[in-house]
Structures are given as C-alpha cells and as structure tokens.
Design a protein around this nucleic acid. Structure first.
Lengths: 338, 338
DNA sequence: CTGAAAGCGCTTACAG
DNA sequence: CTGAAAGCGCTTACAG
C-alpha cells in the first residue's frame, strides 16, 4: 500500500503521464474515452496527486492560507470551518496560520508562510485585514487575497463583510423602542475597525432619535470578558446608571451580566444587556443574550469562494456584504423608568 | 523581491548547493567558517527553503498534521495553539485538518491527507485517538503519530493524557466533603472514552465513601450545552432531586445552570454545580463554575514534543501524563440539607 | 488529441 | 570537509 504516482496511473490506463495530468487538471483536448479510462485507473488505485510535486512543478499549490491574529475561539473556529468547507468542494486545502509579531515581524512572518508553503492565496481575517503595510506587502508579492473585514474604503482589495454600523444602529433603535433612554456602550478593541463602526451605529441611532450622545456612557473595552466586566462596573456605579448596556461583542456582554449579578441588579428587569456576534457564549449565559448574529462561517465561506474564483478567472476579486440579524433573547426588555 | 532559492544562497556564499543544504539541515562535516558564511548569506537574502521541494526530494515535509473530529471550539483552539507553539520552536509547521466521514470514509479522508500533504507525523486528538481501525491504518502507513487521549491500554502507540478518572473522583470527594449526599451526574458523549473514565471516577468516590451508586442520578449527555440542560431538567424534577450536579464538561454544566435558573433554584445555595475542563465558558457564566482544569494547550504542546522527538530519534514514542487541577469557584458550596 | 523532454528546488547517494 | 549528478512527482513548453 505504498504511495501511488502519476506513473502508476499512466501505466494502468495505457497513456502518457501528460495525459493523466490533463485529465486531473480538467484541461481540454482529451478524448472522452481516454478521460474515462484515466479517471477509472486513478479511482481504482486510490490515486491522489502529491501537493508538493504539483506546487513545485506548477504555479499552484492547491493550498489556501487562513491567517489570523487573536480572535475569540468561537469566531476563529467558525471562520476555519467555513473556509475549510468551501475548500473541500474544490480539492483545495486550507492552511491555518496564527500570525506572530507586530509591524515588520508580522510581515516577515506572513511572507515566510507564503515562501515556505507556496499558498495560492490568502484569507486575511480581521484585524490583519486592516493592516495597510501587510496588504501592501501582499500586493508586492502579487498574491491573491480576500479580506474578512468591516467595509473599508482605504484599500481596494476584495473583501467580505457585514454592515457593522447598521447592525449596531438597529440594536440601539430596538433598545430605544423598549423605552431605554440612558444606554451605556462598551467599545471594542481599538485595533479593530469594527469597533469604531459599531460605535458609530450606536451614536447614529441616538442622534436620529434626538436622544443626544453622552460620552460618559461610553467605555473602552477590548473584546474580552474581563474588559466588559470592568466597563460595566464603572457604568453601573454612575450616579445615574444606564438602564441598558450594549456591548460590542458577546464576550464583553457576558462580563456585563456578571457585573449585574455582583451588584444584584436583575437582568432584564432593571438592566437590559445586549451583545454582538451571536457566538456560542450568547446562548449559554443566563439570561441568554440579545445580540446581533454575525455570519462568521458564511463570511469565511464566501471569502474563500471569492478567492477561488479569482484564482480561476485571474479575475479582479469582487466584494460581498452578508446580512446580519438581530437576535432577541431574554437579556433585554422594557426599560423600568422611575 | 522574488523568491530566493538554494542556488542564490550558494552563489552568495561561494559554495555548492549541497553545502547550503548541509548547513540548513544541521548536518555534520561543515567547517565553522563555511557554516557561518552560509548562514550569513541565507539571513541576508531572507532565504527560507521551499517546503514542497524539501518534501519532494527528501523524506520529510516539516509538516505535522493535527486531526480532529468535532471538539468544542475552546478545546480545539487550545490544542491548535499548543501544537503550533511547539512546532514554531522547531521550524515545523502545523497542518490543521478537520476529519470528515465515518468508518472507511474517515480512514480514506486521513489517508488522503497524508498522501497529499506528506505530513511527517500526526497529532490525533480524541475521540479519533480511540478509533482502532484508524490507528491500524496509520500503523500500516508507518506514519508516526501521538494520541491525545485518555489513558488507553487497548493500543500501544504513544499518547499524552491526564487522569480523567482520578480528577472526577477528586471532584466527587470534594462535593461529598461539602455535605452532598444526593449527587447527580451527567455523562459525556458515548463515543469518548473520557466519558466512561469520568463516570468511573464519580462512582469510585461514592463507593469509597460508602454512599452507594444510584443509577437514577446518572443521565446521558453529549458534551454539548443542550444535553446538559435536558439532563438537568430531568434530574431536578425528580421527587428527591440532587443537591449537587456534576457534569462531565463545562458546556453541559452551563446547561445545568440554565436549568436551575429556569426552576428558580439558587446556585449554590440549593444546588451545587460542577463542570469539567476549565474552558473559557466556566469563567463567564454566573456563578462561575467549579471545575477540573484540563491542560489542553499543554497536552497538545507535549504531544507535539513527543512526536518531534520520535521524528528525530526515530525513537519509540513515549507517553506522558499531565497533571489536572481542581478549580473551586462560586458554583459549589455546602449542601443545604433539610 | 497525445506524448517526450526539461525543469521546479530541494535531498539522497556517491565520489573525491 | 566539499561537490557534481541523479531523482523526487508533478507541470510547462513544445512537437507532432
């Protein structure tokens, strides 16, 4: 049961290796009978071409890279599986890579990945997708890539995103419609463009409803649980605390819930809490979180789709915006105005 | 800024490519001055050897595969990062692969991975690590692998694990020491050997303390949140409900918390809840979970270490057992016996 | 529509 | 201690 090569298949099918190569790469100019014979032989021998031989000889490795920096586990796994699922349909494989370093080190790290693995293209997840120096370096290498990112007019490369600002606006409008007037907001990590987009949506909703924007109700967070906890403690110890807190992701919203529990503030009776992302977390805390469904799996699936497409056409990659969805659960309710 | 090859380095250093190869692979028989000259040239050119050329020409790809089936996101990411961290120290790279299929399809999937990517070895995570047919197939391929698994005497291949039964026993003893006499238990997924080991530890503790083992207090779960919720609803609607519930993982313990909230049973005042794994989840629910710290990151790091070591020595891989730790948080307390 | 030759960037096996 | 030749399993560029 040793590894089969293209020569084994060629011999079994009674053709030259070049013909086997043609069939396996869907090149034209092979008689249907010949094609069938080759396919049968390959099938029968359980033949699979060696990726390293292919990538050494040809100009493609059939490898797509997914690079990330430091996302939450649930988000990362969703991205990973979305990209893998799309690759699988195409006999591509996904190479998952956690980047290390900052600045020049980061760029060297990614260039090293490209040089060593010969990936055909890259899925660049956020916040790497917002690093202009990185995008420039990729451009120099002429390596196709698709970003998973909030809409970003700073760079012309293809991307897939959702409407972060719109989603945050809609969530805020929902809270207002429940009677909330003092709404706290916890901003995400300053490195993520999504953070400022979500804040913008929050602000837009307040201003459109004529409520005015009070910076005292806005606290900086970092997309992690502890930062949400900390920010919520501050908000809830204000002389006039908010009746609702909207955190820029679920992890921080879980932190808000804990702060409320610590202070014996019942949720949602005296405090409504909203998150963002609709990760697994939002369904396992109590009360379950009202949140925005971010289609992470689909974002990665779609990004991979665009990438594979542009690898085929050589086409100028396009862009896609995926729909979000407001998910109402038990952590929010009518404001208890006194 | 095109890709550099071994020829570029050889030219810059004034040696033959074979000498460059020797230096880069730490082979003997190179004069220190020559070695230094080659290293300097490689450094200066930012040269990195092509993995595909290496794996095609030589007998190693410098690629380690991590295969998994369907673990929870937090566990998977810990494994992934532990294995990556160990690889990075060694200029190996990690190829992460989600297996698809069952039975023969699963085996074909893994063999396909091996044939196509030429991985030098495999980290086999649980429950794949318990599939005897898979292990047999890997043996036939003579591919080195290390399992991440509960101790398993059924197979002689190397593995890294923790003492699942001992940890469950210790947790149960702790609950007993808090005065609990009616303790519910939620079993993990039947496909995982860890499930029965944890159950065994639970049972051992009860019997050693002369409490007897009541099957009516044991419910089947599947390591996912919903199954914990469901099992807890059943346990808590018993005529004489338990005063403590020990779930075989944190996800299910989070489900128990939700069931308690639904029934307005205060935790830990009237119900103690314990989990297992010490994943992120255990720290973001309320009350935070008492649980067993499973060293997932270290398990993967250590498994990779053993694998790389055996790749070097060709040595018969050894085995390692890593320590667990009981983590006491707010979800457990003294029994409220009436 | 099909094939024989050259070569991708390395390592292996051998020679000096 | 160092190097020239052959070859890994494919694809490319060319010929028929």
């Amino acid at each position: 049961m040793s590894r089969k090569t293209i020569h084994d298949v060629a011999r079994a099918a009674g053709v030259a290796i070049k013909t086997v190569s043609r069939v396996l790469n869907d090149e034209p100019n092979v008689r249907p009978e010949t094609r069938a014979r080759v396919l049968a032989a390959a099938e029968q021998l359980h033949y699979l071409p060696s990726l390293s031989a292919r990538s050494l000889a040809g100009r493609r490795s059939y490898l797509i890279g997914l690079i990330y920096e430091n996302p939450s586990a649930n988000y990362l796994v969703d991205l990973q599986h979305g990209a893998m699922a799309r690759c699988r349909k195409e006999k591509f494989r996904l190479f998952v890579h956690q980047c290390s370093g900052q600045g020049d080190d980061l760029i060297r790290d990614v260039m090293g990945l490209i040089d060593q693995t010969h990936v055909d293209g890259l899925i660049v997840s956020s916040p790497l997708s917002e690093s202009l120096p990185l995008l420039a370096a990729l451009g120099q290498r002429a390596l196709p890539f698709v970003r998973i990112a909030p809409g970003d007019l700073q760079h012309s490369s293809p991307y897939v995103d959702m409407d972060d600002a719109g989603a945050a606006r809609e969530m805020t409008e929902y809270l207002i419609s429940e009677g909330h007037r003092r709404i706290g907001f916890i901003v995400g990590h300053p490195n993520h463009l999504a953070s400022s987009l979500r804040l913008r949506g929050f602000r837009t909703a307040l201003e459109q409803r004529g409520l005015g924007f009070d910076p005292g109700f806005v606290k900086q967070g970092y997309f992690v649980f502890e930062s949400g906890l900390q920010a919520a403690r501050e908000l809830l110890s204000l002389p006039e605390p908010p009746t609702a807190i909207f955190a820029s992701n679920d992890d921080m919203a879980a932190g808000v819930l804990l702060a409320a529990h610590e202070l014996a503030i019942p949720v949602p009776q005296r405090l409504s809490v909203a998150g963002f992302d609709d990760t697994y977390i939002s369904r396992i805390v109590w009360p379950r979180l009202t949140t925005v469904h971010q289609p992470s799996y689909d974002l990665a699936f779609c990004a991979t789709d665009l990438l594979l497409q542009s690898l085929k056409d050589g086409g100028t990659g396009r862009t896609a915006r995926l729909p979000y969805q407001l998910i109402r659960r038990e952590s929010t309710g009518p404001a208890n105005l006194e």
